[in-house]
Amino acid sequence: MPVRPWRPDAPTAAERIDWPAAFGTRFLVTVDVEEEFDWSAPLDRRHRATSAMRAFPEAHRRFSAAGVGLNCMVDYPVAVDPAAVAILSDCLADGRSEIGAQLHAWVTPPYGEVVDPVTSHAGNLPVALEAAKLDQLTDAITGAFGMRPRSFRSGRYGLGPASLALLAERGYRIDSSMRALHDYGRTGGMDFRAIDAHGFRRDGMIELPLTSVYTGMLRRMGHRLYPPARHVPHGRGVLARLGLLSRIPLTPEGVGSGDALAAIDQALADGVRLLTFSFHSPTLEPGHTPYVRNARDRVAFDRWWDVVFERLALRGVEPATVAKIVQTLTP
């Protein structure tokens, strides 16, 4: 029997974050720092290699030169790899970057579940098992880096109904697992269609959704038109090509720079005060993800960020750090 996807409620007005004027409008870059695996194949606990981390230092230097820190969401195979830990520890010296946690349930002990699309989303697990995996991950990161992580992402956007409370109990402050406007129910995941790009508070946590917006002439009807368009052959593509409706997440993975610029402008027009970008660390080395298959794709990845940073600077949007966000939102 199919599992009904968990769908968090839309934030209430009381839950919305009222950013102080002094914070300005800012952006945060998050990286899912993780092992390599075949994205087109079934998940397998044996796939734990972290060789793509060798490409991380050069990428970090580019971000650092632009004055941008990286919020590194580290998962278990990376946290227990001394070479990867050494690379990330060097990145922390920039004074802007920070280590967070990312829970890939299928490669994080204890292994009390059969690996399948549903259990790969940690929020679908029994609460006790989700908590045990979170403890193992948190302890591994704390031991590796000498500090407890305070930001979190559930791998595959697998946040569940108990997840935020579990995180708050363990001292986490920020979650960024909800991908605004996206629905992963068909692949065993969660339904975030009710979540938009604005930050909010819930269950003792600050939720910073990964920024996605609707653009196009019909964007105000996006919630009603975009989901059913997938049932029409090429329906979403036609809407996008006609300039009627697109859903654009802020990521260089599968999103062209022109679309990203349109999404930035729309998010700012919508009053979003913190734009949250994301990408996966294996993308930094060609051949590990569908987004960077060769050296030419890798050059395009860097160029995407150059164009995006130029637009953000033009619009007066400054880089944020986790430390700045926590300080701003702490009473």
Score class of each variant (00 low, 15 high):
201 R>N: 00
8 P>R: 11
214 Y>C: 10
261 L>V: 15
294 N>Y: 05
329 L>W: 08
283 T>S: 14
150 R>T: 15
278 S>L: 15
287 G>F: 04
322 V>Q: 08
129 L>Q: 15
67 G>S: 02
321 T>D: 12
106 W>V: 09
27 F>D: 03
36 E>G: 12
307 V>T: 15
282 P>I: 08
128 A>F: 11
136 Q>A: 15
180 A>R: 03
39 W>P: 01
57 P>T: 04
47 H>K: 14
185 G>S: 04
208 L>G: 02
171 G>I: 11
300 A>G: 10
225 L>S: 10
126 P>G: 11
155 G>I: 07
329 L>C: 07
181 L>C: 02
203 D>Q: 11
250 L>F: 02
171 G>Q: 08
74 V>G: 08
60 H>W: 15
236 R>Q: 15
230 R>P: 00
125 L>D: 04
206 I>H: 00
43 L>P: 02
168 A>F: 10
127 V>Y: 08
73 M>H: 12
153 R>V: 15
98 E>P: 04
176 S>C: 10
295 A>N: 05
137 L>C: 06
159 L>Q: 12
196 D>R: 01
113 E>I: 12
102 Q>F: 09
61 R>P: 09
62 R>Q: 14
179 R>I: 09
81 D>Y: 07
245 L>F: 01
119 T>A: 13
5 P>M: 13
228 P>A: 01
169 E>Y: 01
74 V>W: 09
134 L>Y: 10
192 F>I: 01
301 F>M: 09
60 H>N: 06
163 S>D: 08
62 R>I: 05
291 Y>A: 00
292 V>N: 08
285 E>K: 04
8 P>D: 07
109 P>Y: 11
205 M>L: 05
155 G>Q: 09
149 P>D: 02
241 R>C: 03
72 C>W: 12
166 L>R: 07
52 A>D: 06
303 R>A: 13
197 A>Q: 05
166 L>W: 05
104 H>P: 12
230 R>H: 09
187 T>N: 12
310 E>Y: 05
194 A>V: 00
92 L>C: 06
92 L>D: 05
91 C>M: 13
170 R>H: 10
64 S>I: 00
47 H>R: 15
276 T>Q: 11
84 A>C: 14
307 V>Y: 11
246 S>C: 02
22 A>D: 09
260 A>Q: 02
34 E>V: 00
72 C>K: 11
117 P>W: 10
294 N>C: 15
50 T>S: 12
285 E>D: 11
169 E>Q: 14
143 G>T: 04
326 V>G: 01
305 W>K: 07
197 A>D: 01
318 E>T: 12
74 V>T: 14
198 H>R: 10
138 T>L: 05
105 A>V: 03
47 H>C: 13
53 M>H: 11
130 E>W: 05
257 S>D: 14
233 P>H: 03
119 T>H: 11
238 V>Q: 01
69 G>V: 03
146 G>V: 03
99 I>G: 04
33 V>A: 07
170 R>S: 10
253 E>D: 14
112 G>A: 14
318 E>K: 14
296 R>Q: 13
236 R>L: 04
137 L>A: 06
21 A>I: 01
252 P>T: 12
172 Y>L: 11
77 P>D: 03
200 F>K: 00
148 R>C: 02
123 G>M: 05
37 F>H: 14
1 M>N: 14
